[in-house]
Design a protein around this nucleic acid. Structure first.
Lengths: 343, 343
DNA sequence: ATTTTATTTTTACGCGCGTAAATTTTTAAA
DNA sequence: TTTAAAAATTTACGCGCGTAAAAATAAAAT
């Protein structure tokens, strides 16, 4: 790491005493050269620090070692954590992650796809916005670039989808809530941006009916990705109106629940499952903040580690098998009940 | 956007009836060609969709139009929001943002810098980890690449620093707390990762002394970036031990306060400034979640919009003026008192 | 030691674009 | 219209690397 600056592979070849094509081979796959030459190269490498020009490398490649990771909303810690996980996996597999957030904006989502395309990525891990996403553009993109969807499914798009088994997880928590108190009503946005919300609604209705209860949907207005604000505002409203059909509320996701809990607190309502509690509130996702709400939030965890791992592995498979493959695979991971203080 | 695929600039030149060098000029600066030719090019452009190969473009450039945005911890919504803002500004200025998170890891921070260097970025907006950062590597990097630091200052490194005026903001909230009740003690980590924390501690001590009160530091153990967890754990501990010197606690940042509030809630302590409240808790930053805590968190806002804007503009200036410039500039923005329920 | 096989070297070309210099064309000014 | 200035075209080279083909060398097998 000293000496004169090496400016290109030619120069590094001469100072290391190895021919340029061999050096080139080495950088594309260190194991593809004889062990003794590999050592010589590596010895030269920490004597002269040289790194190939990434632009020159990629100019003539049909695809690069880049893998795009696109999430709908980076300011949501759930997606931030997911992205973090995926980045690690991508690096471990020898690729370079390129992180992009869509900020809840469909146009930006498409732009992200476009700017990724210019990078000739080996593949993309995409969590689409859901409703609002432009399915045609995404489908188009996924035909050129190996794409694995996660979190939000867009039917038929991409090589695979990995997400949560909303059916199972909602069933789990509805069952739990019914066993331990009044059957829950379901608090959600009327037009959720996320397709999981639809699945959860259906699952809720089915679960309630299976248990012989009447489903009670509380569908509130609200747009965008500021779920806490919506949960707070609309939670405040329904609590003021005393229009809740039961004392138990299952929120479609934790961020709504966080807002709802805040509203309940401000209304002076004691939330929880003990005596003297007026309300039970549950969520879904096991959001990083859900263990610090007041009371702590009972919820169902999404197995985001498994989702991240499976997504990444699916993508690597597709990439390494040369993309033309079998059927589109959908993998759903079960959630786990997280019993905390709120229900 | 139809017809045959154009594969390079040569081909696009011929189908558009313009010479390749002119096309090249156009892409580097559309205003640098005559209006009539610009129109012809643009007409061809939406007839034949062609986008120059970014690798070929950048191969021979000493620097690209890329601007790195590095934050210490993307799963912290504060940094996520900041990054989002900066991305917008970077795009608006005609550059391409490259977002990198260091996940609280100094090695990763250095790696991020290294991988950025390969991209030959025009500049970097860097929020360093703080303590734990490798100042030498960062200094080295900042000598090659125009770098503006934000949030956390590393003295003498980079072309500029933009952050919060902790002196002013802490003064503000200490003053407020003293006016409305008992003087606060200061709850913080013994070895905070963030240099702002040191500034805030000093500012707290100075403010208290100026008001004739004795500063009371509550320095707790804890490492890493899981501030809520630390605030909760150590908050629970001090509340159990009843070792709080006053009924008012100023936390070094909102994330600690969020954990602390959660601890207080679980201990059954009523937090707030009304009668019947056993405790007042305040934070610092106006973290996105602070308006949904129970009670809502009284805090001082960081002017993150101004910080983002000023950081970006400083960087653009340095870049466009050819980097060799005047003195290193430090800009601090004042915070605003955000009076909510907790104090 | 000889043959076979696996690597490396030599040589050479191409990728897509930036860009410089000389020339021609277009536009604006006189 | 003529002249001067601005812009576009033609021509040509270089960037740093991938990579193919043929020749040379080294390692492994006989």
């Amino acid at each position: 790491m000293s000496e004169p600056k090496i400016k290109n592979m030619e120069e590094f070849a001469s100072v290391s005493g190895i021919s340029r094509p061999t050096i080139s081979k080495y950088f594309n796959d260190p194991t593809s050269v004889r062990a003794t030459t590999r050592e010589r190269i590596e010895r030269a490498l920490d004597q002269f620090d040289y790194q190939p020009n990434m632009y020159a490398i990629n100019q003539n490649r049909r695809l690069t070692k880049n893998i795009g990771v696109i999430v709908p909303y980076l300011a949501d810690p759930f997606f931030a954590e997911m992205a973090r996980h995926m980045e690690d996996l991508v690096i471990a597999a020898g690729y370079r992650p390129v992180l992009l957030g869509s900020h809840g904006d469909a146009d930006l989502e498409v732009e992200n796809l476009n700017s990724l395309r210019l990078m000739k990525p080996a593949g993309v891990l995409l969590a689409p916005l859901g409703r609002g996403s432009d399915p045609e553009r995404i489908a188009e993109f996924s035909q050129d670039v190996p794409t694995v969807l996660f979190d939000a499914n867009l039917e038929t798009i991409g090589e695979a989808f990995v997400g949560s088994n909303n059916q199972q997880s909602i069933n789990l928590i509805v069952d739990y809530l019914c066993r331990t108190g009044e059957p829950p009503s379901f608090f959600e946005m009327r037009l959720p941006s996320n397709p999981n919300a639809f699945k959860r609604r259906q699952a809720y209705v089915a679960a309630m009916e299976a248990l012989g209860h009447e489903p009670q949907l509380i569908q509130v207005d609200g747009d965008g990705w500021e779920f806490e604000a919506i949960g707070f505002r609309e939670g405040s409203r329904v609590l003021e109106e005393r229009s809740l059909p039961t004392d138990t509320v299952l929120c479609s996701n934790d961020r709504l629940a966080i807002g709802f809990l805040s509203a309940a607190y401000q209304k002076g309502m004691r939330v929880g499952l003990g005596d003297g509690c007026a309300l039970r509130v549950a969520g879904h996702d096991d959001h990083p903040f859900s263990r610090y709400t007041c009371p702590t939030l009972t919820t169902v965890s999404q197995d985001y580690e498994s989702i991240a791992t499976k997504s990444a592995e699916s993508l690597f498979e597709v990439i390494e098998s040369g993309s033309a493959e079998k059927m589109r695979e959908e993998t759903l991971f079960d959630g786990k009940l997280v019993m905390r203080g709120s229900a």
